[in-house]
Structure formats: C-alpha cells, structure tokens
Write a protein that binds this DNA or RNA. Sequence first.
DNA 1: ATTAATGCAAATCGTTTGCAGCGGC
DNA 2: GCCGCTGCAAACGATTTGCATTAAT
Lengths: 126, 126
Amino acid sequence: MRFSKQRELIQDIVQRTNSHPTANWIFNKAKKEISNISLGTVYRNLSQLNKDGVINIFYDDNIARYDWNTVAHDHLKCNKCGKIIDIKLHNRELKKEVLKQYKFEAENIEITISGICENHMNFKEK
Amino acid sequence: MRFSKQRELIQDIVQRTNSHPTANWIFNKAKKEISNISLGTVYRNLSQLNKDGVINIFYDDNIARYDWNTVAHDHLKCNKCGKIIDIKLHNRELKKEVLKQYKFEAENIEITISGICENHMNFKEK
DNA sequence: ATTAATGCAAATCGTTTGCAGCGGC
DNA sequence: GCCGCTGCAAACGATTTGCATTAAT
C-alpha cells in the first residue's frame, strides 16, 4: 500500500466536499470510518497533502480551511449563512496594474468578497 | 477624562504606524509607556476600538493585525520580507460582475496580493 | 456609591510536537 | 530490522474571560 489508510481517507473527505471544511470537521467525518483516528494525524496529513500540492489551505478569519481546488481562485462569503462559494475572476489587468503602479511583482491574487448570497437576499426570504 | 489612558495609548499606537501591527507588538510598545499594562487590556481595547469603527482588524494567515485605515482597501504582501502595503484598487466592475454572474450582492471586497516587493526583486538584490 | 475599566491568572481554541509503539516492506 | 506513520497526551501561541481591585465621576 502506497499511503496509509488514514491519509487516503483524509484526502477523500476533502475531495468529496465543496464546503471548505475545517480540520475539526474533517476529523469528525474521519472518525466515522476510523473510530480511533487522532486529530494530530488529521493535521499532519492535511499539512502533508498541502505540501504535495494535492489540496489547498486558506484562512477564514483565523481558522484554517481546506479545499480540494488547488487552482488559484476566489471566494464569495455570505454574511448571513457563512457559506463560502468558489468563483474565478479574471485578474490579468490587476497584475499589470500592480506592477506598473506599485512596482510589485504579483504572484498570487486572492479576492474575497463578502456580502449576501442568492438564498439570503431580502426579497427572497420566505 | 473621556477614555482610560490605556485606551488612548492603544489607539495612538495603532494610528501612528503603517506596519499593521499584531496585538503583541502593540502590547510591547504600550509597556514602554504604562509598564504594568496587561495583554488582556490591550485585546479588550483593540476589540472595542474596532467595534466603534475607530480601527480595523484583518487576519494575516491566522493572526490578527490592526490597521488605523478603516476605509475599504487592499493589501500587497511581500513573500520575502513579510511587509504588508496598503493599496486601493478600483472594483466597481467587480461588484457588478459578481451580481450578474453569481447573483451575489457584494458588500465588501478584499484583495490580497502576494508577491515580491520593489526592494526584494532579484535584480535589485545587493 | 455606582459604574466602567483595569491587572492578573486561568481558561479556551486551534494547532503542533515528542514519544513510544505499530505496520508494511 | 528498518522506517514511516500512528495514537495519545502534553505543549504551544493567540486570544478570551472571571474575578477582585482600582479609577473616574
């Protein structure tokens, strides 16, 4: 076996959700399959999977969230329900603008937009 | 006196730097003026100042940073030296695009760009 | 005298780490 | 037998909180 079953389980859990889970959420999910799995193992594997480029880490306020989507992308965060939605905004002009205006060589652009998602706009409340 | 001298000192410290300080940095600075000030007081006042709209909080990875600039703006973060630079990017089109394409009502847009700052570009290394 | 804010220490939360033991080659 | 990975528990860093005391009106 190439990888431990713990590692494979953790990778699967992250890759099977769009919910941008926290380590603790993943831990609870994992316990259903391997009841004595430890939180340390979850963190160690998440960190390793990230180093290997298999999954992505980002921070929502001060807590880590994990994402199967390793391609650079952006997030919409609903202030009503907390849901985080993946989106892709084009930013070619942004890199150029930043280089010209601030002499800063952009490597990574992360746009986080908070507001109200479709399901929670006032006029749609049931 | 309207506010405690601790609160006034903390507000002053935040407003007199462009370094986006952490609570601990502020605490150390404050101790030079009020040697027995406590870290709890620093946190309590930073949180209150933020609620009052006097200062801003944002998170750099998983640690809180405080900013005198309460107007929505963006950040450049240098991967070499860690410096965070305030910038203002225009985003009128972004709000429109997000509403049209994702039916999401954007309230706040935060763009964080990481890369290499002017002082740390290769060809400028001394 | 009342009320808010303080210093201090303990508690909490998310995360990391040391270590002895186990599993697969 | 070796080496990597595990579970467990203790340690850690940032932040919050309970409480008895102090400061301001």
